[in-house]
């Protein structure tokens, strides 16, 4: 009887607050996952002091310049009013609400492995932001780049990335690296058509005239073989390499907006996964 009363009292005390607490939890989880997925790095025009998530950041690539879109919940220029299914299709399949295909400059082949719950937590967080009315800029692509309609064929041939199962105990690190963090989009070499060479996961991509390239971050001698787990964790937290040099370029933004925001346990999971590659 005493137990029953206590339970009733607890229910009365928390009954009104529980949904609000759950919503807060969802937003907090969404904010964390949004950081882990690195959304703000690409969807913010930092060069021109743009509002976070309002888009306009120029991604220079061998295919031309892609301008990232506004993902604040503005109903005309952003993603306001999108249903859960529309958001999931965009994030994991690269399909816009009007049915058109996105270019894979948006890393949906990596995000394809994101769980539905995590993706919808990100949506809940983005929906909670202040809407920003800012029209998207058209891309400036090179003459040989086909229109978005051709991306359907590209996806059929290439996407999503077909990763092997991670080793036991490394699942969380694999999820963070491969899907949320989409590290392979820069650090894995690509073959014909831009498909990632998954047999060389995170083995680095070469610097070219139109790309700054990215170093190997697997456990090879060219990569992180000489780094201790703690060196990697520290780098992901504060951006300093073991030799005292600091991260630069795109990776500095990744550390600022993404990996420094993660829990120590998640940084450790990433480090363990990377050290296990090769």
């Amino acid at each position: 009887m005493k137990t029953g009363l206590a339970a009733l009292a607890l229910l009365l005390l928390t009954g009104g607050a529980a949904p609000a607490a759950a919503a807060d939890d969802l937003l907090a989880r969404g904010a964390y996952l949004t950081a882990a997925a690195g959304c703000v790095s690409c969807h913010t025009d930092k060069e021109n002091d743009g509002t976070p998530f309002a888009g306009g950041h120029a991604i220079e690539s061998p295919y031309g310049i892609f301008y990232t879109p506004n993902i604040t919940p503005d109903s005309e220029t952003g993603i306001g009013g999108w249903t859960d299914d529309e958001f999931l299709a965009a994030l994991r399949e690269g399909i816009a609400p009007d049915g058109s295909h996105y270019y894979p400059a948006f890393p949906y082949p990596s995000y394809a492995g994101m769980t539905r719950d995590d993706a919808l937590a990100i949506k809940a967080y983005l929906d909670s932001l202040e809407p920003v009315r800012q029209p998207n800029k058209p891309n400036e692509l090179r003459w040989f780049v086909p229109g978005r309609s051709a991306m359907g064929l590209w996806k059929a041939l290439n996407s999503p990335w077909d990763y092997a199962e991670p080793a036991a105990g490394l699942e969380r690190g694999a999820y963070l690296v491969r899907h949320l963090g989409h590290c392979g989009e820069c650090h894995t070499p690509r073959g014909a058509g831009g498909r990632l060479k998954l047999s060389q996961e995170l083995a680095g991509s070469p610097k070219t005239a139109s790309s700054e390239g990215a170093p190997a971050i697997d456990n090879s001698p060219d990569g992180l073989a000489d780094w201790a787990l703690s060196d990697i964790e520290f780098y992901l937290e504060l951006g300093m390499r073991p030799d005292g040099d600091f991260s630069s370029g795109g990776m500095a933004a990744v550390i600022e907006d993404n990996t420094s925001q993660l829990t120590p346990a998640d940084r450790q999971a990433i480090a363990r996964y990377l050290k296990n590659l090769r």
Binding site: L238, G239, M240, D245, F246, S247, S248, A252, S260
Partner: peptide, 10 residues
């Protein structure tokens, strides 16, 4: 502060 100092160098 350590990160900010490092970033200022970089």
């Amino acid at each position: 502060a350590f990160k900010a100092a490092g970033d200022s160098c970089k």
